[in-house]
Design a protein around this nucleic acid. Structure first.
Lengths: 218, 218
DNA sequence: TCAGTACCGTACCGTACGGTACATAGCGTC
DNA sequence: GACGCTATGTACCGTACGGTACGGTACTGA
């Protein structure tokens, strides 16, 4: 699952400015912006654009990678894991994830990737898949294993448990956001959603003291 | 929630042929097909196309509605509901839903709607949202209420329960499909997924004899 | 001072596409 | 057989966009 190339691309300051301009345009117009519009927005010339990124697809790819490189996810310290720290880790993971997928930038990126995957035009779909659902699985895996080894989680197959976690957290938020339903839950709303999702998840897969223990109000 | 207009549109046989051609093109090329391509595929003239559907957006809208009108979902007879019949209803609902969202046609449609929602171009996003997640909620609602009245289900808020059901069933299948991950679960695979999702759901929201009762192998 | 480099701004080219106009053909009706 | 109706096929127009070319400018380093 980790065979995909994680080419770490470095961009200059100026290039990052350009890519941020592209991100802004994506949020505003989806795929419907021209290279000329990028130049206007970023105050750069077309030639520079083509020198740096090759063609339009290259520019979009770079933009996706640039955005992906910004996203970081919380981890879990394996040395001192307790019922509460595990619950907290899952919860903040869920919060981060919900914040990402309901953000305008992420929605725009996902829209772009999805439509490119449909046109079979490039690797954008693969890249976003790699940095989206698959990255979530990769990052969640060690946390789950730590939990299992500590006797706090119990599952037959880690893949299925992770998928369940994904489903409980994301539910229909992502697809509704992508389909243009404007409202994004507030910060406290997201926290509530995450809390509930984690509680439900632990009802299903918690073990020992985590099972059936309601979340603390902290 | 039911305020949206369900304009039942009738199409002639010939028009349906054209719309099916559009569907096929969508599956193959996403949004990247021309009106001329539609004409070639359907052996009709541009003028006819524009007479019938107004413009490109109208054609796409009609196509989405035509496809949506094809999808039907299983219901539940409220008179004789038992633990087993409710479980079965949920299960076949889950199976139908999974079959729909992992189909190529649905993926193509969702891609289109999603990218149009991003460009703010039309009502496609709203239409698909209406016939997708929101339709699922609408159709699931009465089933849940029947279950609650029969003492088979127990939830604090029906909306949240439905969202949980959605999450457990759909999980990451839809987004991965939309992002171009080719593999679609087999029929028996889908059944397994549905069975597991319903089991998990009933662990969380089942009451009485449904709670903690593992699913029968039927 | 001058060459080299990196970038900006803009004009330009080819093409593809949405949409329109028109000429033509099948077909039912009187 | 003349008519309206509907649909096909094709030729055409305007435009928008991807991509290229080129002149001009600022900076760097010898």
């Amino acid at each position: 699952m980790d065979i995909a190339v994680h080419k770490e691309v470095e961009f200059s300051v100026r290039q990052r400015e350009v890519l941020d301009a592209v991100l802004a345009l994506m949020v505003e117009h989806g795929d419907g912006f021209s290279m000329a519009a990028v130049c206007r927005r970023a105050s750069c010339s077309k030639e520079t654009l083509y020198n740096w990124f090759g063609d339009r697809d290259g520019l979009l790819t770079a933009t996706v990678q640039w955005q992906a490189s910004k996203v970081r996810m919380p981890g879990l310290d394996s040395s001192a894991v307790s019922a509460e720290s595990l619950r907290q880790a899952l919860r903040s993971f869920a919060i981060s994830w919900l914040e990402v997928i309901t953000s305008d930038v992420s929605a725009a990126l996902n829209r772009l990737a999805v439509s490119h995957a449909g046109s079979g035009k490039g690797r954008l779909g693969g890249i976003v898949l790699e940095h989206g659902p698959l990255a979530m699985r990769r990052r969640l895996s060690p946390i789950f294993e730590i939990g299992e080894n500590a006797g706090l989680l119990q599952f037959d197959a880690i893949d299925l448990a992770i998928r369940t976690f994904f489903g409980l957290v994301v539910a229909d938020w992502q697809i509704r956001k992508m389909l243009g339903e404007a409202a994004r839950p507030s910060a406290s709303g997201i926290e509530k959603i995450a809390r509930r999702a984690v509680d439900e998840f632990l009802l299903l897969y918690g073990a020992g003291e985590l099972k059936n223990s309601k979340s603390s109000k902290e």
